[in-house]
Computed example of a mutant assay.
Amino acid sequence: MSSNVVQLSGPQWRGPDLQELVAKAAFGDQDAFGRLYDAVAGPVFGLVRRVLRDPAQSEEVTQEVMLDLWRNASRYQPERGEVLPWVLTMAHRRAVDRVRSAQAAADREQKVAARSHAPVFDEVAEQVEGRLEREQVRRCLKSLTELQRESVTLAYYRGYSYPQVAELLALPLGTVKTRMRDGLIRLRDCLGVGT
């Protein structure tokens, strides 16, 4: 073996016993947790940074993982595996949760933005449709006789009653009613209503 290779096992590796530190931390030993923190924070940050890519968020998630480690040290089961892989699994889960949370927030914002823009299109369509209908009504009104057009305009656009229309046009009420009925029938036919 060459002298440039560092061997991480055997007599040359003198790192802290992570299982012992976790066991002590589980009983509230802050000094043991401090040493555990120093031993695993770097690998945790590296893993989280690879998942999140954002340094600030990676620091936040690393701190959350380390807090979880302090709170859940008593849940570590040595028979299920080594400490570092257990901690890195917690870190990976936490980082993936952060990515999913950010994606869900972005999706919600996109849906809200899409919904807030939809009424603009409906409003435009409604305005165009209203304008076309008004043009068609104007065209059909022009097809009525002068007396029919005046009677319909006074009653339906100005809000006058039939007797008031008769008085304004100086015509008998029966004549106004007949002209209005005939005018409305012609309008209905012209507009294609009821066909």
Score class of each variant (00 low, 15 high):
residue 51 V to C: 10
residue 68 D to T: 08
residue 58 S to G: 03
residue 59 E to P: 02
residue 69 L to C: 14
residue 66 M to A: 00
residue 64 E to N: 15
residue 56 A to Q: 06
residue 40 V to H: 04
residue 43 P to S: 06
residue 39 A to Q: 09
residue 40 V to D: 05
residue 63 Q to M: 15
residue 55 P to F: 07
residue 50 R to C: 05
residue 53 R to S: 11
residue 48 V to A: 10
residue 53 R to Y: 02
residue 48 V to C: 10
residue 48 V to R: 03
residue 39 A to T: 12
residue 57 Q to Y: 04
residue 55 P to N: 11
residue 68 D to S: 12
residue 47 L to I: 07
residue 49 R to K: 08
residue 58 S to H: 02
residue 49 R to Q: 05
residue 43 P to K: 04
residue 65 V to R: 02
residue 47 L to C: 10
residue 70 W to T: 11
residue 49 R to E: 02
residue 66 M to E: 01
residue 50 R to D: 08
residue 61 V to F: 03
residue 47 L to F: 08
residue 71 R to L: 14
residue 63 Q to F: 12
residue 63 Q to C: 13
residue 44 V to N: 06
residue 45 F to P: 02
residue 54 D to H: 13
residue 54 D to M: 13
residue 44 V to S: 07
residue 50 R to Y: 04
residue 49 R to T: 02
residue 51 V to A: 10
residue 69 L to G: 12
residue 43 P to Q: 07
residue 39 A to G: 10
residue 55 P to W: 06
residue 50 R to L: 08
residue 50 R to N: 08
residue 60 E to C: 12
residue 44 V to T: 11
residue 63 Q to N: 14
residue 58 S to D: 03
residue 70 W to H: 04
residue 52 L to V: 00
residue 55 P to L: 11
residue 46 G to W: 02
residue 60 E to T: 14
residue 58 S to T: 02
residue 67 L to H: 13
residue 44 V to A: 10
residue 71 R to A: 14
residue 63 Q to T: 14
residue 41 A to R: 15
residue 46 G to R: 07
residue 55 P to T: 12
residue 66 M to S: 03
residue 62 T to P: 04
residue 51 V to P: 05
residue 39 A to V: 13
residue 61 V to P: 01
residue 58 S to R: 00
residue 47 L to Y: 06
residue 67 L to Y: 10
residue 65 V to S: 07
residue 39 A to I: 13
residue 40 V to C: 09
residue 57 Q to K: 11
residue 54 D to Y: 08
residue 54 D to V: 13
residue 42 G to W: 03
residue 70 W to S: 10
residue 48 V to M: 09
residue 60 E to W: 06
residue 70 W to M: 10
residue 66 M to Y: 01
residue 47 L to N: 07
residue 42 G to L: 06
residue 52 L to T: 00
residue 67 L to G: 12
residue 57 Q to D: 14
residue 62 T to V: 10
residue 61 V to H: 01
residue 61 V to Y: 00
residue 43 P to R: 05
residue 55 P to G: 08
residue 41 A to P: 00
residue 45 F to T: 02
residue 64 E to P: 05
residue 67 L to N: 11
residue 67 L to R: 14
residue 42 G to K: 07
residue 71 R to Q: 14
residue 52 L to Y: 01
residue 68 D to K: 07
residue 54 D to E: 15
residue 70 W to Y: 06
residue 71 R to Y: 05
residue 48 V to E: 04
residue 57 Q to I: 08
residue 60 E to G: 13
residue 65 V to T: 06
residue 57 Q to N: 13
residue 41 A to N: 12
residue 69 L to M: 13
residue 64 E to R: 14
residue 61 V to R: 02
residue 67 L to K: 13
residue 51 V to W: 04
residue 39 A to P: 05
residue 63 Q to E: 15
residue 39 A to Y: 07
residue 39 A to M: 11
residue 49 R to P: 00
